[in-house]
Simulated scan of single mutants.
Amino acid sequence: MALELDGQSIELDEEGYLVDLSAWTPEIAKALASGEDVELTDEHWDIINFLREYYEEYQIAPAVRVLTKAVGKRLGKDKGNSKYLYSLFPYGPGKQACKYAGLPKPTGCV
């Protein structure tokens, strides 16, 4: 599977996650999101950037519970809850947000 973007072919795995994590750009995030009819807002970017920083620090994509708690600490209780995260990423804040952030699928996600 591949994503065609600006004349380049970006390799994706069978679930649509980036194969080469270092190939990620914000444009790739936008293209992946638009393929799922999602327009990325500042609120989406808050979570995507948070995930990228988290991954850089811990070398793992957080499971939803960990993500929810960590977002609450960093961005406030109003954003650190599943209802808010699911409103942004209806296919699952862990899976969908990690895909847009160019990260591997979180462990524990089916």
Rank of each mutant, 00 (worst) to 15 (best):
E43W: 02
S9G: 09
L88G: 04
R65C: 01
K77H: 14
K99I: 08
L103R: 00
A70S: 14
I10W: 07
L67H: 07
I60Y: 01
T68G: 08
G108K: 07
S9V: 08
N49C: 12
E4C: 06
G72P: 07
V66K: 08
I28M: 07
A97H: 02
E15R: 14
S9R: 14
L85P: 11
P93H: 05
P90F: 00
Y58T: 03
D37T: 13
G35Y: 04
K105E: 12
T25N: 04
P90V: 05
K79C: 13
G108E: 09
G92A: 03
I28S: 02
I10K: 04
L75N: 10
A23G: 09
C109I: 10
A29Y: 06
F50P: 01
K77P: 15
V71I: 15
K73L: 12
A29F: 01
A23D: 15
P106N: 09
G80H: 07
I28K: 04
V19C: 11
L103N: 07
P104V: 13
A70N: 11
P26C: 08
G16V: 13
T107Q: 10
P93I: 00
R65T: 09
A23Q: 15
L5K: 03
D13A: 07
I47P: 03
Q96K: 11
G108D: 11
K69R: 09
A23W: 05
K79L: 12
Y17G: 09
K99Q: 13
Q96R: 10
A31F: 10
D78L: 15
